[in-house]
Amino acid sequence: MKEETHIENAQLDYNEEELLLLSKKNIDHFGKIYNKQYDSIFRFVLRKTDDDELAADLVSEVFLKAMLAIKRFQYNGVPYQAYLMKIARNEVLAHYHRTKKRMVISIDETNLREILESEVEVKMEAEKVISLIDLLDEDEVAILELKFFEGKAFYEIAFILEKNESTVKMRYYRALQKLKEKVSGQ
């Protein structure tokens, strides 16, 4: 059995920080982080591309970049997943910049209905929401996506978007307010 496969499959009870330290010394340990985080990063990218093949390519680039930068990575309490999402977001934005296509936002219908009912306090057809989302700017959409679909805390969103936490909170409530006003005006 190859050593890397052995490390990857070993049931080691390391926490994230220890695993990152081990990966800095021996990159084969990164396999455990890769296996743990792959699905969530893939889903995150898929929501922004709606294309399996493209998402797989971008996710592969994300992990490659993370591996190449592992020695420079400083653990500051923000989960590593947020760090990977930050790279993923930049990869997706770079892709849309290169191809000059409109950004895809793929939303799960059931999820959307739940969010609308709990946060905007309104029952609405999913199709009608499309016109409302178009009123929001790129940052507001990103904040709402990360908050609702990824379940991220404000400090993680601030880290991913490279913004201040209070700015993120303010923009989040402003975006919700904007949606409520438009819904009540319709």
């Binding site: 709606d50 950004m103 895809v104 936002i105 219908e109 178009d134 790129e138």
Partner: peptide
């Protein structure tokens, strides 16, 4: 023209 290509997944 719309800013985003929004797709509703079922």
């Amino acid at each position: 023209m719309k800013k985003y290509d929004i797709r509703i997944r079922r």
